[in-house]
Design a protein around this nucleic acid. Structure first.
Length: 741
RNA sequence: GCGCGAUUAGCUCAGUUGGUAGAGCAAUCCCUUUACACGGGAAAGGCCGGGGGUUCAAGUCCCUCAUCGCGCACCA
């Protein structure tokens, strides 16, 4: 076969990659239903793409994710599996809404309330659509062999149906309930957020000791103390043995005399402060629990805008920051301040808005993680479990393996601290809570008994579709975005319908994602799949790290150190970008990326290009002979070494050590094949006899053939392009066999 | 506070069940030799964070300390 003219010039990824990608797309091989017979008869292998948020564009973290998953999929495809890699995007409720609202405020000076719910949602929808198109383009540029025919969106019609079905079923199982419980309220975003959406920041503040009747109490938050009428101590604390549980004590407090009640509770730490505290159940989760245990009154002190309520008397209407020093001043004037100390603690801020999170008691929807229920499909009565138990057992039993395994410990630890999951959000963009209300007649037996704290009696309807009849209004709230993402492995496959896809591809084989969303997403998927399908969502979790800049700093706009994957692809090609994100990092570890690294792998693509040119020129038109056995002793030895090498990397592929395989292939192709074998060949072609020359020609052809196959999952574009130049009869490289059976 | 990880060549990292320290990049010197200067050749570079222990043998196992990073919990 002749050497194509294109090989006389350096390899040009820019002129190649888009063309190759559209050839792949046209082949249909991304879709498991259109794969060659070998694959269609093979075992299914499935991955769902962690759906990128439609908040803008993809970053290097996404690019790394795409590279790793494409390696897995292409490898398995070549090994004959029936591979499905299912793409999609995430509406990312609060993230997208706040991004769009910020833009509208900036450009038009209007907020979402000025536009109204309908118009605002229309605008968010347009934004999401644009983001989606950008993202899809970027996914293509990375060479990702995803099945576009099955693309999904967490907020499209099918997924919405799945969400409503899931909500309804979990409600019927008793796992979803509505209640007045303490939640994390973000006054800036005007919504609840989950425990995992809190970012703790260190803050230096004052810690005050106040005289509270005969006691001294400590606090960092004087502004919550107005309503405190319970004073709590440990039952075993000898210092306060004289005071009995339930005892009333009259004392002078901020705004005059009050009557306090003594409560003995074992949760008090005798070592901390004075061992005595007053409680504010409305604004502290710990205090709330104490109040629940002893059935104490709860009173709201701070409103949803972070201002003090009338209970604060003269301080009512003030913001916390303004009121705090004034309150302390008043207490000091009354002689109630014992002392103050400098104090460092962590304050809770909202991840999205940066607002100071204020615990509040609110009527919200929750998923009960400690509620016992029957798992669907399991033998009756045999398996009453809690969601916590399900999540724990999925990993403990080995049904799910987390790579690297140290994250299993972190996962267990998180479950141990898990509280009921608040799923309702006071934002507009997202899945509307599928619940409808109307005023109920007194004594109506359809009253929701789980809603026991409700002040107004109302009928509650939970359903997949709106109820029949007059007077119903739907819940204004939307669901936490992770509620819909939690269904992702099966909602994308057609659930709740019992589709062929669901049977074939679920549980999925691998979930590959960043360790930073282990709790947000991975754990929630295990939870949702466990209770709705009685199964696990995936068998292996492969966690990648964060992509940082060359100095190990997080990439951010303010540091101006962002490396854009599209820039890198444009300058150095998709293959080079992929390799730079694979090599030099193991699972669970952060990756330091610099432009030099990407450049280096571009050179490697060109090296492959020139290796091919040499091999083809040397072959002088001779084709690869699959059954060739006439090797010289030296070549037979090289062939044997190559087989051993390929076996080694195949083993490592099975162990998810892609970083290692990528590096070894690089080394083998360049420093073994090119530097040694090719160089030696020159002498053989100059001086060797016919047998030696023929042996060497076949060795080169076979070695290059193996290298292209093995390297294809890592560098799909350049290997496919070379493959086309070498042999047009066999069809695409992407569906050829992996070099080792 | 509890837990996890990292510490190996100038930099980024490998190092499988313990058995004489590896790769890439960078740096140094040489080479425009007909696959490739997006290249080739050569040489250089390491008390494997400190200390202790187990062992015939420790980068690897155990203990301890230090520095950096991360997660969780927060205490009123």
């Amino acid at each position: 076969m002749a050497v194509p003219d294109s090989f006389l010039k350096p390899y040009d990824p820019g002129a190649t990659e888009d063309r190759i990608y559209s050839l792949w797309e046209k082949s249909g091989f991304f879709d498991p239903d259109d794969l060659p017979e070998r694959n269609k008869n093979g075992e299914p292998f499935s991955i769902v793409l962690p759906p990128p948020n439609v908040t803008g564009t993809l970053h290097m973290g996404h690019a790394a994710m795409l590279a790793i998953e494409d390696i897995m999929i292409r490898y398995k495809r070549m090994r004959g599996y029936r591979t499905l890699w299912l793409p999609g995007t995430d509406h990312a409720a609060i993230a997208t809404q706040s991004k769009v609202e910020k833009e509208i405020v900036k450009k038009e000076g209007k907020n979402r309330h000025d536009l109204g719910r309908e118009e605002f949602l229309k605008r968010v929808g347009e934004f999401a659509k644009n983001s989606h198109d950008t993202i899809v383009n970027q996914v293509r540029k990375m060479g990702a062999s995803v099945d576009w025919s099955r693309e999904a969106f967490t907020l499209d019609e099918k997924r919405s149906f799945a969400v409503r079905t899931a909500f309804k079923r979990m409600y019927d199982m008793g796992l979803i309930y509505r209640g007045n419980r303490i939640v994390n309220w973000d006054p800036k975003g005007q919504t609840t957020i989950s425990d995992d959406e809190i970012v703790y920041k260190e803050e230096k503040t004052k810690f005050y000791y106040f005289k509270y009747g005969p006691f001294v109490i400590g606090t960092a938050r004087p502004e919550t103390k107005f309503g405190d009428k319970y004073v709590v101590m440990h039952p075993d604390d000898a210092r306060y043995a004289a005071y009995k549980h339930g005892q009333k004590i009259d004392l002078e407090w901020i705004n005059g005399p009050i009557t306090a009640t003594v409560i003995k509770d074992a949760s008090i730490d005798m070592e901390f402060g004075t061992g005595v505290m007053t409680i504010t159940p409305w604004h502290s989760a710990v205090d709330f629990d104490i109040a629940e245990r002893h059935k104490l009154d709860k009173e709201q002190i701070i409103d949803t805008f972070g201002k003090l309520l009338p209970v604060a008397g003269e301080f009512a209407g003030m913001k916390i920051a303004e009121a705090r020093p004034k309150i302390v001043e008043k207490l000091r004037a009354k002689g109630l301040v014992e002392k103050e100390e400098d104090y460092v603690h962590n304050i809770a801020t909202a991840e999205r808005t940066g607002g100071l999170v204020e615990p509040q008691i609110m009527k919200q929807w929750f998923v009960g993680v400690n509620t016992r229920f029957e798992i669907p499909g399991a033998k009756k009565g045999s398996s009453s479990k809690t969601l916590k138990e399900i999540m724990k057992e999925a990993v403990e039993s080995g049904k799910i393996k987390i790579i690297p395994d140290r994250f299993e410990k972190i996962y267990y630890h998180w479950i141990d601290n898990l509280r009921d999951w608040c799923i309702s959000r006071q934002i507009w963009y997202g899945h509307r809570v599928p619940v409808w209300y109307r005023r109920a007649e007194i004594g109506d037996e359809r009253l929701d008994i789980r809603d026991e704290r409700s002040e107004t009696r109302e009928e509650v309807y939970v359903g997949v579709e709106a109820p029949e009849g007059e007077g119903w209004r739907q819940d204004e709230d939307t669901l936490d975005t992770w509620f819909s993402s939690g269904l992702w492995t099966f909602s994308t496959l057609g659930w709740p319908e019992e589709t062929e896809d669901l049977k074939l591809y679920h549980p999925t084989d691998v979930l590959e994602t960043g360790y930073d969303i282990l709790f947000f997403w991975v754990a929630r998927m295990i939870l949702m799949t466990g209770c709705l399908l009685g199964d696990v969502p995936f068998k292996t979790v492969y966690l990648h790290g964060l992509v940082r800049d060359g100095k190990g700093r997080k990439m951010s706009k303010s540091l101006d150190n962002i490396i854009d994957p599209l820039d890198m692809i444009k300058k150095y090609g998709g293959d080079a970008t992929r390799l730079s994100l694979i090599i030099g990092t193991g699972p669970g570890n952060d990756l330091k990326l610099s432009e030099d690294k990407v450049r280096g792998y571009k050179n490697f693509a060109n090296k492959l290009w020139n290796i091919t040119r040499f091999v083809l020129e040397s072959a002088g038109g001779e084709a690869i002979d699959k059954a060739f056995e006439g090797y010289t002793d030296a070549d037979a030895k090289l062939r044997k070494a190559r087989r051993a090498f390929l076996e080694e990397i195949t083993r490592e592929m099975e162990e998810f050590k892609f970083y290692l395989v990528g590096e070894k292939l690089y080394h083998y192709a360049w420093h073994e094949f090119a530097d040694k074998i090719l160089e030696d060949s020159k002498k053989i072609f100059r001086e060797g006899d016919e047998k030696a020359q023929r042996s060497r020609r076949q060795l080169l052809l076979h070695t290059l053939d193996d290298i292209l196959r093995a390297l294809h999952p890592f560098m799909p574009f350049v290997t496919e392009e070379i493959w086309r130049a070498m042999d047009r009869d066999q069809g695409m490289l992407m569906v050829q066999e992996w070099p080792i059976a």
